[in-house]
Simulated scan of single mutants.
Amino acid sequence: MIFRAIKLTYRGVRDMFQHPWAQLFTVLAVSMAAVLAGIFLLLLHNVNEELIRNRGAVEFQVFWRLGADMDEVRTQWERMQGMEHLKEMETYTPETALRELSKDLSGQGALDWLKEDNPLPASAFLSFSIPPGDLSEVWAKGLLAELRTLPDVQAVHYNPMQLDLANSWLAVSRSVIWPVMGFLGLVVAMVVGNTVKLAMLTRKDEIEILSLVGAHPWYIRAPLLASGAVTGLASSGLALGLLRLLHLRLEHVLDFPPVFVVISFLPTQQCLLLTGVVTLVCVAGSWVAVRR
């Protein structure tokens, strides 16, 4: 049984080359539909990532006591780099903090007279992504307590409203992105399905002849379903390759001040989703064409 299925699949792939131009145009048409869907997914993915980066995070401000040993503080900074869910971290020695404050207030060097008696402590600004689940508030309070117990730490601040805003945005993001992806998959299915059904018209005479001589329905359908699957895999592979080339050209197009946005490629999950949808729709289009 397995050997027979492999044989019918091989025949379906081999028969594809009997109509090379029709097959080529079918792959190109399906690939273009998949590329358009991929571009929209790429846009949606990056917009979602950027909004989550800006709104789906909680920031903690840590201040050490004035005159704390900077070697010990730097050791703590190194440990903080390995904290779970940490996204970004900025650290300031008393000197760098005074320099930044001077630039913000009156320009470079305006507060140089404070260097001998610097009133600013060492500080760090930590940005954490929200962990999955419904215990984010417990996590934030636990992290706050952990940071406060560090040696020489005088104060730790964070805004609880920022946590609520981050949780709200993550919920909205999840409720929007999947319906949009579902609608996009439906549009791609309609375009790809009609393209494959039209391509099957080139083999209409072959199907009718096999039916007239009494060939079993699966003897007719299996090779065509296999060719539909190969068409879907080839088209989605070509589409992902074109998307990758487009991404390489556009990756740093927005990486300039004050935007500083680096466009990221589709994650593996969405690449597999695009490949699976295109392949399944090609197989379904072949099935509908043969059934009729």
Rank of each mutant, 00 (worst) to 15 (best):
V191D: 09
G12C: 01
V73I: 04
E59D: 12
S127V: 15
V288L: 13
M161G: 07
E72P: 01
V196K: 00
M80S: 06
V153T: 05
Y10D: 01
G228M: 02
A29N: 13
S227P: 00
K141V: 14
S127Y: 04
A284W: 08
N167G: 09
K103P: 02
H247N: 05
I177E: 12
N46P: 00
P151E: 05
P160G: 05
Q18F: 04
D205N: 14
A215F: 02
R79D: 10
A234F: 04
L114T: 06
L24A: 15
V30D: 03
L238K: 05
E72R: 13
G38K: 11
I130M: 02
L36W: 00
H216E: 13
S123Q: 04
S211E: 12
Q154S: 15
A166P: 07
E72M: 05
T75W: 03
V290Y: 06
Y10C: 03
L144R: 11
A145H: 12
L198V: 04
L66T: 14
V180W: 07
L98M: 07
P132T: 05
A122T: 09
R249H: 13
E206V: 11
L248M: 10
V261Y: 10
P94T: 10
V30Q: 01
T9K: 00
S264G: 05
N46V: 00
S31D: 06
S211Y: 04
A234Q: 01
D164R: 13
V283A: 12
L120S: 12
P121C: 10
A57W: 03
V281I: 11
F60Y: 14
A33V: 13
D255T: 06
L36I: 15
A29Y: 08
L225N: 02
E50S: 09
V290F: 05
S211F: 03
D71W: 00
A97F: 06
V30N: 02
V253E: 01
V153C: 10
N118R: 09
D15P: 01
A97T: 09
M32C: 14
L245C: 03
H216C: 06
L248T: 14
F25H: 13
L224N: 00
E88F: 13
G237W: 04
Q154Y: 11
S227G: 04
V288G: 04
A68F: 08
E116Q: 14
L280G: 14
W218T: 07
F125S: 15
H216L: 09
L150F: 12
V73W: 00
R249A: 13
V277R: 01
R244M: 13
A68I: 05
G38N: 08
Q108Y: 10
V187G: 14
F183Y: 01
R203I: 04
G276A: 07
D104G: 08
L51W: 14
L184H: 09
T202K: 06
